Simulated assay, not measured.
Amino acid sequence: MEKKTRILIVEDDMIIGANLSLQLSTLGYEVTGIESRGEEAIMHTNANSPDIILMDINLKGKLNGIETVALIQENHNIPIIYLTANSDEVTFTRARKTHPFAFVSKPFNRLDLQRTIALAVEQLEEREGYQKPLNEIQFMEDRIFIRCNGKMSKLLLNDILYIEADRNYCTLVTEKCKHVLASTLKTMEEELPLSSFIRVHRSYVINISKVDVVTDHHLEIGRKVIPLSKSHKEFLMSRIHTI
């Protein structure tokens, strides 16, 4: 069965939101929900990980659409399509800083929206398709074996820089290559030795010996900037002091 692209609609006008949902469902997309407040959109994204977010800039509640997207992007890399009736330069400049995939002006043309989403889906498929998820990992004391192209390849644990979550998959990164694994980050964390690997964020497990820089809100491994959650910072610092 072909996987459906999952789309979250964030729209303060529930009539428009319901109409959008109907159109998207008719086009074969899966609508994960319709939210009218930024706070609810963030919680929904954390719980459901949609593939694309349609985001109205003017929302109910304390957060507008731009502020909501900025907070979502702290933990997720999801294409954003802004839906907006505001065409002023100030709004556009602020929204542009969040690097959206596209802007669709209200009242939007159905065909324009359909084409914009189709282009976003194509980019998603290209981004996710550059590496096929691998199916088998075997853990040993100081190494893992990864099945690739019909054979098991050895990877020393000390060569791993960090592991990044992507829903039910994760990406294991070394200095020379990346491996997309058919495993959750939680499973990898449980299998890897705590003496070397710790979680620093909901989406990252790092090799503590590879850390170059630690700040209040992020750490760096090579040129990669990795977010550091407040709840994990104290444990990370205590581990660094024991190295």
Rank of each mutant, 00 (worst) to 15 (best):
E122V: 08
G150C: 09
L157D: 05
I163R: 09
K151L: 10
Q114M: 04
L119A: 06
N168I: 08
C177T: 13
Q138Y: 13
G129P: 03
L161F: 11
E128Y: 11
I117W: 00
Y162A: 02
I146Q: 07
A165E: 03
A120M: 03
S153W: 13
A165G: 10
S153K: 15
T171C: 06
E136Y: 14
C170P: 01
E175K: 15
C177R: 15
K132E: 12
I160K: 10
N135A: 12
I137C: 12
D166H: 11
D142W: 03
N158Q: 11
K151W: 00
C170N: 05
T174P: 09
V121P: 04
E164T: 03
E122Y: 03
V180P: 02
Q138G: 04
R143P: 08
C177Y: 10
F145I: 10
P133N: 11
H179G: 04
M152G: 08
Q138M: 15
Y169W: 06
N158C: 09
L172M: 13
I160C: 07
V173K: 09
E128T: 02
T116A: 03
I144V: 14
D112Y: 07
K151E: 13
E175F: 09
I137E: 02
L124G: 01
I160L: 09
A120I: 02
A118Q: 11
E122H: 10
A165D: 10
D112G: 00
L119W: 00
V173E: 01
T174G: 07
A120G: 06
R115V: 09
I163V: 12
V121L: 03
K178N: 06
T116W: 01
A118E: 04
L157P: 08
R167S: 07
E126R: 13
L113G: 00
Y169T: 02
E125S: 10
Q138I: 12
Q131C: 07
C170H: 06
A120L: 04
E164R: 14
K151R: 12
K151P: 00
Q114S: 11
E128W: 10
R143Y: 13
E164G: 05
Q114W: 03
E141V: 03
A118Y: 00
K132Y: 08
E136L: 13
I117P: 00
V180N: 05
K176V: 11
L161D: 10
I117E: 01
H179T: 08
G150L: 09
P133G: 04
E125F: 08
E126P: 00
Q114A: 12
N168Q: 10
N135M: 12
I146M: 01
V121W: 01
N135W: 08
A165Q: 08
Q123M: 11
A120F: 05
N168D: 09
L119E: 05
E175A: 14
K154D: 14
D112K: 15
V173A: 00
K176R: 14
L119V: 09
Y162W: 06
M152V: 02
M140N: 13
Y169H: 12
E136A: 15
K154Q: 13
